[in-house]
Each structure stands twice: as structure tokens, then as C-alpha cells.
Nucleic acid binder design. Sequence first.
DNA 1: AGTTAATTGGTACTTTAGTATGACTCCCAA
DNA 2: TTGGGAGTCATACTAAAGTACCAATTAACT
Lengths: 139, 139
Amino acid sequence: MKKTVFIFSALIVALLILFQISKYSYVNGDVAIETIISVIAVVFLGIGLYVNKSNSKKHIPRNNNIIDQNKISALGISKREYEVLLEIAKGFSNKEIGEKLFVTESTVKTHVSNILLKLEAKRRTQAIQKAKELQIIPS
Amino acid sequence: MKKTVFIFSALIVALLILFQISKYSYVNGDVAIETIISVIAVVFLGIGLYVNKSNSKKHIPRNNNIIDQNKISALGISKREYEVLLEIAKGFSNKEIGEKLFVTESTVKTHVSNILLKLEAKRRTQAIQKAKELQIIPS
DNA sequence: AGTTAATTGGTACTTTAGTATGACTCCCAA
DNA sequence: TTGGGAGTCATACTAAAGTACCAATTAACT
């Protein structure tokens, strides 16, 4: 909200400055009224575009690719377990995950079991669903 | 792109109209220069806001909750198979899905096998992943 | 130095998941 | 009316997934 206050302040200041400049210039006959109006028009068109852009940017990140790191550690999920979780969500088997992470299938199974406990899931598919709900993996 | 052309045309027309109005009003001494400038400023501020809004709206629909019905039928996935697919994505076991849809686990297995064939997946987790990529199930 | 958590790996076992095949019913379009 | 797709179910099998315990190593912390 600080930004909004700043923008409107700048807007008012700009308005006053332009008033004075245009008055002064006109009185002296230096500048044509068309020029003054054009400058005003362009400036405020630009302000309108800028304000709208900075507002619309806030609405774009509706997709939750923002991973909640706090929840991961709150659940006690370790670095390695998390890596396994990501591979599970991609649809890989335990064997494939083992090959990817350079560990045996046995190790992967251990990690998976721990993940299921920590996410309170009965199956890996349920773990995927819960992890996405908790926003700890990208959807 | 038609909209953009329209907007810029309207912009130019508005500019010309304002030129004439301001000239005429000033010559007659009816209106103060401050008023003219204020009107110009407000009008172009409004234009700036409007143009960017209609542009940014096009970028918003990045979320894909829109299910592609055409792809489902293109893949030859039947109504019942699709129902099973949705339950798989929710993390249910074959037995649980059977209870939900009032069929035996055996029937669910048949459906699952067909789904895996049609989605070219080796596992149900991979089927979930592919289905989400194809936007045939909500993410 | 001792403790703890994380990572790794193994064995043995149970439970799901998935495949293959066959069969029955229902309904719809040719 | 008949062929085919969709849906249902069963059996028998193989393949993954998951559980339970145990154990060794390493890095970090006290």
C-alpha cells in the first residue's frame, strides 16, 4: 500500500507542476496549446499504463508454483526424502528413482515409507495429492 | 489484434476532438486552461488504465482447470474409465474406487489397465502426471 | 568424545497394482 | 437382427509397492 500512496502523491505533484509550466509557457507565448495538451496526454497515458501494470502483476501469480519450504521442514521431511517425493510425483517407479538418485531400490523404499508416514498417506498416489494440497510440490 | 486497432483509432479521434474543443473553448474564453488540462489528464489516465486491463486479461487464464473434453474422446477414454481416472488422481486404491463406484475391484483393475494403455503409462502415478499434462483432469 | 539425525542398504514378508484371458449382459446403430 | 462397444466380473499370474527390522556410515551439534 506504500506504493499506492507514493504513486498518487507523485501524480498530484506532476499535475501541479504541469499546471504551472503550462500556464507560464502560455502566458509567455512560448509554447502552443497543442503541445501542452499533447504532453499532458502522453504523461497521463503513461501513468495510467504504469499503474495498471503494477496492479495486474499482483493478480497474475494465481498459479501456486510457490513451494512452501516451511511446511516441508515442519513435516520433518528431509532433503533426500523430498527429492524422492518429487520423482514419485513425476510418475517414476522406485527402481527408476533409485537410478536417478544413484541409490538402490531398497533405499528408495525406505524413503518412500518415511514420506508416507510423514504425509499420513497410505499410498504414493495419496502422497502426491496431499503434497500438492500442502503446496510442497509444484502442481 | 482488432481490438488494438480499434483502441488506437479511438485514441486518435479522442485526441483530435479534445484539440478542437480546447481551442474553441479557449478562444471564446469560456473555460479556464486548468479545466482543459484536467479533462485531458483524466481522459488519458482512463485510456491508459483501460488499454492495459484488456491486455492483461489475456494473460490471466494460465490456470488450467479447463478440462479438454476433446482430448478425452480422442484418446478413446470412456465415461467409466474417466471416472476411475479421477479417483486414481485423488489417491484412492482400486478397492476404494470399487466401493465408490459400486463395482468390484476386478472391474476397477480392468478399467485401470485400459487407462494405462490409452495414456501410454506404465503406472498409475505416471497416468496422473500425463493426464494433468494433457489437461484432461483438474490440477 | 558422545549424541543425534540423515542417508544408505539389506532381508523377509504382506499388500496393491497390473496383465492376460475369457465370459456375460446391455444397448445402439447398421 | 446382428455386430460391436461399453461395462461388468472372475481367475491366475507377475510385478511393484509398502512394512518391519536391523545395521553401518557420515556429518553436525553439544
